[in-house]
């Protein structure tokens, strides 16, 4: 069972199904976010439906590009024998 499940995520023949599954899940999350009751809004973002989705996507993109930018342009990434 575990081997099959892991194989589903690895084997390229399931790529299309994986994509569909992902899109369905993403859609469900956003829809659910619009449907839930939001009476307990502690922070301003709690009142915005779809906030988590937008924030997650933007955060991830920002982390990837800003980090790589700092790494390459900021002189952080060095050859492996840098300290030798």
């Amino acid at each position: 069972m575990i081997a099959k499940l892991v194989n589903f995520f690895g084997d390229s023949k399931y790529t299309r199904i994986r994509w569909r599954l992902l899109l369905v899940i993403l859609a469900l999350i956003v829809i659910a976010d619009f449907l839930i009751d939001r009476h307990e809004t502690e922070n301003f973002w709690d009142a915005i439906p779809g906030w988590g989705a937008a924030f997650g996507f933007a955060s991830c993109a920002a982390i990837i590009f800003i980090s790589k930018f700092i790494g390459h342009k900021g002189g952080i990434m060095k050859d492996e024998d840098y300290y030798d």
Binding site: G56, S59, F65, Y82
Partner: peptide, 25 residues
Amino acid sequence: GVLMFTLLAFVLFLKYLDPENTISV
């Protein structure tokens, strides 16, 4: 929402994330 859309961004920007043969200072 935060986590699964992180996954979406990961899949879309995968090629920018490839590990490189470097060490970090």
